[in-house]
């Protein structure tokens, strides 16, 4: 039974990854966009924000990779909505396969895509001056944290995709919840610089905790409690959204 479930998940993951290979623009555009962000923020705001692009890129890159997997998470819901509207989900639900395999296959293949994107971002970052300042293994830990965060948010996105059932709606719904979270966080600037209300929100934003953790591991600044808050958030997301997504998958009318 467990081996069949595993086999189903692997088959579904392979299918999704094959789709990314066949339609490379899916991955290319989701990589180009954050690279553009990286370049624009570094060269346009870098000077204003920290008085020199050299130090800002070290601050920014950890934030940008967190933002990238956050935006990338939207694709999980969009892809599921696409499968739903094309009747693929009906096909899968009519097969004697594990009920969790479609969702797990989806989120895992998006995790694999994130590995590719995050590594590419790091390489581009290094080309424009980013330096790993706290050792290679701490940086690996930072990337691991980023990927885990992306995986957690994929489940939120999956739930939304299954509820809205429509690619366009999944897209715009994605922007509604992703944008405020991304910008009212420490991804681009320190929360201390924000106005009071936003700052309250930003300080408790899970993305701030994740970005702070990733940044601390990368720069060698103190991690503090950020890592625990970040992990707690992700744990909470898994606990709530995995069962919620599976429930919606089972009950698709």
């Amino acid at each position: 039974m467990i081996s069949q479930t595993l086999s189903d998940i692997i088959v579904m993951t392979k299918r999704n990854l094959l789709r990314y290979m066949r339609v490379p623009q899916l991955v290319v555009f989701s990589t180009i966009q954050p690279i553009m962000f990286l370049l624009l923020f570094t060269y346009v705001f870098g000077g204003a924000i920290q008085g020199g692009t050299g130090s800002y890129i070290n601050y920014l890159l950890p934030g940008i990779i967190v933002q990238t997997v956050l935006f990338g998470a939207m694709m999980t819901g969009i892809a599921l909505a696409d499968d739903l509207s094309k009747g693929m989900i009906d096909r899968f639900r009519s097969l004697p396969m594990a009920r969790s395999a479609v969702l797990a296959g989806r989120t895992i293949s998006d995790l694999v895509r994130n590995v590719f994107v995050v590594v590419t971002m790091t390489i581009v970052g290094m080309l424009i001056g980013f330096r790993i300042e706290h050792g290679f293994f701490n940086f690996l830990g930072a990337l691991g944290m980023t990927l885990l965060f992306g995986f957690a948010f994929s489940w939120i996105s999956a739930t939304i995709g299954l509820i809205v059932k429509n690619v366009e709606t999944a897209q715009s719904a994605g922007f509604i919840w992703v944008f405020p979270l991304a910008f009212a966080s420490s991804i681009f600037v320190r929360v201390e610089t924000m106005s009071k209300g936003i700052r309250m929100f930003a300080e408790h934003n899970p993305i701030t905790y994740v970005a702070n953790t990733v940044r601390a591991l990368s720069l060698g600044t103190p991690v503090g409690n950020n890592v625990w808050y970040a992990l707690a958030w992700m744990f909470g997301i898994f606990i709530v959204f995995i069962p919620l997504a599976v429930r919606h998958y089972r009950k698709i009318a």
């Binding site: 086999s7 299918r15 009747g87 009906d90 899968f92 009519s94």
Partner: peptide, 30 residues
């Protein structure tokens, strides 16, 4: 495992080949 269903819309994965579509379904039938 005992029934087959062809729904109202052709449920095929457009990015895969015809053969890959059938093999995918076969693998999901274990």
């Amino acid at each position: 495992a005992r029934i087959g269903l062809a729904g109202q819309y052709a449920a095929i994965d457009e990015t895969l080949t015809g053969r890959e579509n059938l093999e995918l379904v076969g693998r999901l039938y274990h």
